[in-house]
Design a protein around this nucleic acid. Structure first.
Lengths: 143, 143
DNA sequence: CTTGCTCCTCTAGTAGCTGGAGGAGCTAAG
DNA sequence: CTTAGCTCCTCCAGCTACTAGAGGAGCAAG
């Protein structure tokens, strides 16, 4: 029963979360401070490594730290409804889809700008002209 | 010839760049410090407003400040080749397209996660399970 | 005992702003 | 003349999610 546990370096390797990032997560209270060895070193168990892995997956999927706080809290109450998890995920997906459409528009605009560039002098450059152009000034605060 | 010029607030309205952001751009040297009135207030002319508008357009298209520095420098040399503008724009477009493909993958993953959620308890939740799941642990540092 | 690795804490930096404190100018009404 | 209310001024802290570095200590092997 006397598990020895992992050093922060081992926990990092197993979870795929960098050492400095683990400490950062502890600082901001995303994970709780682990026990320490006599030499003041952090010691992690399987559970904590799983938690870190969970966090990494969620970050890779673009969830914000605050979302992850919520998701982690849910894993502590396995019998509760997963409505909240669903809500967080849906909200996030909406954000992702929005960003995709924004970026797609933006990509088209860039492509058009580049295509129209005659590769001559700056004063004839479509890239520069497009940026300077007042004609598509709508002051839209989109994004 | 004695142009009165615009206050920072007017310049902000005309360019669509917020007052605080204009001051910030001045601080980081993206725009040069304007003349001041006797009362120490910044005074801008048409040219400076155009410059701010240019910056706003470029920012809306997602160009980084350093890119914009380069693009602005080019507008100062209208007879130079626009090769560099083209290069900056192409590089940026590449980044945008990359982000789009990343986000698209991510969106699919999220959608799958959400679709598979049975809306029951947390312990059965596909969202939570997916995040905790070790099976797609590749430690890929992609992004 | 020394070398070299990991670990510790603390601080500051990244990008691109945003917001607040605390004060001054400017305009118009009372 | 004074007061109110607006904009403006500077400076500094905070946001996100980390990352990097300084300066020091534990620890294992040779």
């Amino acid at each position: 029963m006397a598990e020895r546990g992992f050093s922060i370096g081992e926990a990092s390797e197993r979870s795929g979360v960098k050492v400095t990032t683990i400490r950062f997560y502890e600082n901001i209270g995303l994970i709780s401070p682990p026990v320490r060895t006599s030499g003041n070193r952090r010691q992690y168990g399987e559970e904590e490594v799983d938690r870190l892995t969970f966090i990494r997956h969620a970050r890779e999927l673009g969830f914000e730290i605050d979302d992850i706080r919520g998701l982690l809290a849910m894993t502590e109450r396995p019998n509760a409804s997963c409505q909240e998890a669903d809500r967080i995920a849906r909200h996030h997906l909406k954000g992702v889809n929005h960003r995709i459409s924004q970026l797609t528009l933006l990509g088209k605009e860039l492509q058009r700008m580049i295509d129209e560039c005659g590769h001559g002098r700056v004063c004839d450059c479509r890239v520069i002209q497009t940026l300077a152009d007042h004609s598509h000034c709508q002051h839209h605060q989109s994004d």
